[in-house]
């Protein structure tokens, strides 16, 4: 919270906190985030635990969902729709894209609603509010890992042996998390103020899927549109995942630059916006 300055005087040993109206936009107070790291951990743990409590399949859902979606989409878009996949088996091509997309859509819908969903908490307890969108972004990573395990099975089925490139996967995973957090900061803070966001969000996520190369290859996008298309950061994530998982998959890394710039701007703007809105969360929510 930008309103606080922790004064670490040697004596007296009691921590001193000064409460005052907030000033400045860029006081990120990451120290407070570090202090509350256990809360982040426990919220992530809670989200993961609660999600599969009292379900018959339990954690298997994290694998079942993407696999089932992959099968249906394969029938609809490949078998019936004849959508190409750059010469790779469509199920593998599709699943490699669905893998990060499932994560992004899930983390986004949870992160976006993380503040409003925890309204009682916000109006009753102090903690750095950033923890809520942050932990909602981290929790679905567990599902991502499980869905990845299912992907290994799929690769084995098609007799595909991963190369060293698979080691770069965490990097693209982090990129996906950063994008989601960047968008989540904006969406969650806007949602506190404008309840329309609750209606817009699912639509927004669906649209986002269609402007990302999940069902179709980037090669199907007209050349003249590519530059604009590359502004979508999810393009980089999906292409990165495919590059890391599918041997022989070709990626134009120059396409990554615009999206990295976009991520940076959205993330920095989101942090500033979140921080400035944070002061009024408890009053408005």
């Amino acid at each position: 919270m930008s309103a606080l300055t922790i004064d670490q005087r040697p004596s007296p040993t009691l921590p001193h906190v000064r409460i005052q109206p907030a000033r400045g936009l860029l006081d990120l107070d990451l120290g407070a985030l570090w202090q509350y790291r256990e809360l982040i951990y426990i919220l992530v743990w809670r989200d993961v635990t609660v999600r599969y409590k009292q379900t018959l399949l339990g954690v298997a859902w994290a694998m079942f969902q993407p696999v089932a979606t992959m099968l249906i989409f394969t029938v609809v878009f490949s078998v019936m729709g004849k959508i190409p996949s750059d010469g790779f088996p469509y199920p593998v091509f599709l699943y490699a894209g669905l893998l990060p997309w499932f994560y992004v859509s899930q983390a986004l819908s949870r992160g976006g609603t993380s503040l409003v969903g925890e309204a009682p908490l916000i109006s009753k307890v102090y903690f750095p509010r950033l923890i809520l969108p942050l932990s909602s972004t981290i929790a679905p990573l567990v599902d991502l890992v499980l869905a990845f395990v299912a992907f290994l099975g799929l690769m084995a089925w098609f007799g595909i042996i991963p190369t060293w490139r698979i080691l770069s996967l965490p990097l693209f995973g982090m990129l996906a998390a950063t994008i989601t957090l960047a968008a989540g900061l904006w969406i969650s803070a806007l949602y506190v103020k404008y309840r329309d966001v609750g209606h817009i969000l699912p639509m927004f996520i669906q649209l986002w899927m269609f402007v990302s190369p999940i069902l179709y290859p980037v090669s199907k996008v007209p050349e003249s549109w590519r530059a604009l298309y590359a502004m979508n950061p999810v393009v980089s994530v999906v292409e990165g995942f495919r590059w890391a998982l599918i041997p022989g998959f070709h990626v134009d890394f120059m396409m990554f630059l615009p999206s990295l710039a976009v991520v940076f701007v959205v993330f920095a703007g989101g942090l500033i916006y979140f921080r400035s809105m944070e002061r009024t969360f408890a009053d408005v929510i």
Binding site: A3, L14, P15, H16, I19, Q20, K124
Partner: peptide, 22 residues
Amino acid sequence: KILSRITQPTTGTADIYGRVSS
């Protein structure tokens, strides 16, 4: 709520010495 840092004051300050639980 101000003393437990849930919301911010519009003006004025409060100094708190020690960990607070609310």
